[in-house]
Write a protein that binds this DNA or RNA. Structure first.
Lengths: 108, 108
DNA sequence: AGTGGTACTCGGTACTACTTAGTACCAAGA
DNA sequence: TCTTGGTACTAAGTAGTACCGAGTACCACT
């Protein structure tokens, strides 16, 4: 499915937060995970910009660790602010999706 | 609920298409309808920019009619391209929301 | 030495919702 | 008459986010 770019705005960051919240992980793996989840067009550059933003906004704790198969990895874990942000994200998502579905069914 | 701005990107236009698809209507009324549907922070300026974009992209048929309580209104109705675009929007929405919910439940 | 997979950074672009200011019509009250 | 408030649209500019492109760099295998 392509042409999702605009619709992803505001939600992709939340998806990344959710993934990080499940398990401490790093950019390259997050991209792969998103791809296998059906976000097939999301590429690495996009994920890295989100990760840098999360770091800048103080929502994650970052740990650099060596890799056995390539350059060192930056592992990300949610801190308290990040968990709070994730909860807010889901609240917003629930709100939005319920309104949208209401609009769809409320034939006029 | 505030702070929905980013999340609305890509979906608000679809909502406007849906509203127009239900009934020929005009900008001011669309804004009111969105507000009562729960999109409380959406303001007129935003709706008008969407309507101008829809018109520019050839998705609507526009008819100007006098109003009894103010300046003339521009009524919008979907044409074939608009109905097609609306169907595409819902397909994208279904796809995205199913992936997001899958991510949410797929704890791991 | 070269290729391919892994891993991150950074400058710039495109698109969309929002902001702000402006124009303009009409009715009712001071 | 003037003002206020509700109705109705336009247009220029801002901010935020996903995407693009190029670059750097590590490692294993051939």
């Amino acid at each position: 499915m392509d042409g999702l770019t605009e619709m992803l705005k505001g939600t992709l960051e939340g998806c990344v937060l959710e993934i990080i919240g499940n398990e401490e992980t790093y950019g390259y793996a997050i991209t792969r995970r998103l791809n296998e989840l059906g976000f097939t067009d999301v590429i690495e550059g996009t994920v890295y910009t989100i990760l840098l933003r999360l770091e800048k906004n103080g929502l994650v704790q970052v740990t650099k660790r060596p890799s056995e198969v390539g350059p060192p990895r930056k592992f990300y874990a949610l801190n308290d602010a990040g968990r709070q942000e994730l909860a807010t994200f889901w609240a917003k998502w629930d709100y939005l999706s319920s309104r949208i579905n209401q609009l769809r069914e409320g034939g006029r």
